[in-house]
């Protein structure tokens, strides 16, 4: 049953990674504007000017 120690260790590491990802997302300002990015991703890149 000592495998439980390893399993719990691994699960904690995974959870910690997710916590880290969340903190990073907050830190990088992703929670400050949750509207504009949804519009921005709809804009097409204009590779060549005047390409209709």
């Amino acid at each position: 049953m000592s495998i439980i120690f390893i399993l719990i260790g691994i699960s904690l590491c995974v959870a910690l990674a997710f916590l880290g990802a969340f903190l990073w997302a907050v830190r990088s300002g992703q929670y400050e504007d949750d509207y504009t990015p949804s519009i921005r991703m709809l804009f097409e890149d204009e590779a060549l000017p005047d390409e209709k």
Partner: peptide
Amino acid sequence: HANRTLYYQLGVAAF
């Protein structure tokens, strides 16, 4: 800057 503290607190508590 919007108050980010609450997000940090919320994240830690959820975890």
